[in-house]
Amino acid sequence: MEETPVRTGSQHFLPRLLHPKHEFGQRILDFERQIALMAIINRTPDSFYDGGRTFALQAAVDASLRAVSDGADWVDIGGAPFAPGPAIPAAEEANRVVPVIQAVREASDVVISADTFLPEVAQQAIAAGANVINDTTGLRNRDLAAVIAETRTHVIITHSLAEPRTVLGRPTYADVVTEVAEFLVRQVEHAVSLGIGEDRILIDPGHDLNKNTLHSLEITRRFSEIAGLGYPTLAAVSNKDFIGETLNLPKKARVEGSLAAAVMCALGGARVLRMHNVAAARSAINVVEAAMGWRQPAYLKHNMGDFNEPC
């Protein structure tokens, strides 16, 4: 792995975004002055983190609305894992995600993304109220791109090497950050050529997706090189294997490590953080945004008067 110079002075990176403000239905997110918190809702029986806790329809809806109450700006709803395993038929995946999207949209103006790479599922998800398609294949499917272009929906273009649900042994990179950045630039250009507006594109380097722990740590350290491409960049670090391997901890004990990685990415220019532990992540984001000068503290009392009263 190449060494990069340590930056001095300001210890955070402010990416120059081509389109800082993105409109998601009734919500406008200004990524020049805001870090959006994306909550994760997996309606799968074998989900990576919760092991199927939100597989039941009402459980998924309740978890989504609880995340909004806890401070999520965005809810990402998925019905098919990326991890190796049998393919999920489009009809089954749609039956999992569409009713959740519809129920959440009826109750809230929160940004909703459908975590899918199938055009049939994307079409139904958008009709139900999704604002964004979160595509972990990096928009390789022209039919999916056509759905996104026709509906003027936002898309998250994510880096990965292998097809979803397939095994890729020992992924190798000469320079993981450079190669991820080059892939994302190519796929953004491809998206634009297929009619998707630049103002509706976000990118994700894909921590742990066909990458080992050293690769994901390198991406975290050099996140500014991805964020500097000019598109709002998502960091999906929550409770992932690179956190567990770094700390030698199981999934349920990775909250603090996940928050550390998320904050590091935010200081490197990440403008969307995809997190399981919403309340904790909301607190972390609020502190970062306050330190950036983007939000005011909830109150000011410490050393603000003649006497220093305990807070």
Rank of each mutant, 00 (worst) to 15 (best):
A125K: 02
A191I: 08
Q34H: 15
D46F: 12
P15W: 03
Q34W: 13
L37I: 05
G244S: 11
N248E: 13
I35L: 06
D62T: 12
G244M: 00
H12V: 07
S238F: 09
V263G: 05
G197Y: 09
G195E: 05
E106G: 15
T153D: 04
T151D: 07
K240S: 03
E92M: 00
I157N: 07
S258G: 11
I196G: 04
E32Q: 13
L17S: 00
A83D: 13
A280H: 14
E225M: 13
N308M: 13
I157W: 00
R66P: 01
I40L: 08
I219N: 12
T172N: 10
P5I: 12
A103L: 10
T172P: 04
Y231F: 10
T8C: 11
V110W: 01
R43I: 02
V192Y: 08
A63W: 00
W294Q: 04
G85H: 06
A130L: 05
H154F: 08
V61M: 02
A122G: 09
L234C: 13
A145F: 10
I201E: 04
A94E: 05
I77A: 02
A262K: 00
I285S: 09
E218M: 14
Y231Q: 07
V68L: 04
P205Q: 09
L247V: 06
P297E: 10
A146I: 02
P232M: 00
A227N: 09
L247S: 01
A67D: 08
V132A: 07
G71C: 07
A59N: 06
G257M: 04
A145Q: 05
H190K: 15
T4W: 14
A125R: 04
L139I: 12
G206R: 11
I196V: 09
R152K: 15
D73C: 01
E32H: 12
S160A: 14
D46S: 12
E218R: 11
V110L: 03
R142M: 12
F55R: 10
K240L: 08
A90S: 14
I243G: 06
A72H: 11
N239M: 11
I41G: 00
I156K: 00
